[in-house]
């Protein structure tokens, strides 16, 4: 990912999130509307349903350098 790791104690895992457009993605929007904060190393991919997430996508994200993946829907 483009954000370089800072000193070890400040290390933030790069997280790719697969979020269902109907619930979690809308929830992430709500977090923004409510001005909640979370680390900028979380990046979300919008899917039509968590059922759309092929395990291959998760493996690919980890192979490509993501530290963690979350699927939510």
């Amino acid at each position: 990912m483009s954000i370089e790791n800072e000193a070890q104690e400040n290390w933030q895992p790069n997280i790719v999130g697969f979020c269902c457009r109907w619930c979690t993605y809308a929830g992430a929007d709500l977090a923004g509307i409510s001005r909640m904060n979370y680390p900028p190393t979380v990046r979300v991919i919008r899917v039509p349903c968590s059922g759309r997430v092929n395990p291959q996508f998760i493996i690919r994200a980890l192979q490509q350098g993501a530290d963690a993946v979350f699927v939510s829907g």
Partner: peptide
């Protein structure tokens, strides 16, 4: 906006990097 500038308003540099991503 909802998933970048509004949730990272205290970290403009990191938010800019995230926006690029």
């Amino acid at each position: 906006r909802e998933q970048c500038s509004w949730v990272h308003q205290h970290e403009p540099e990191k938010a800019t990097k995230k926006a690029v991503d």
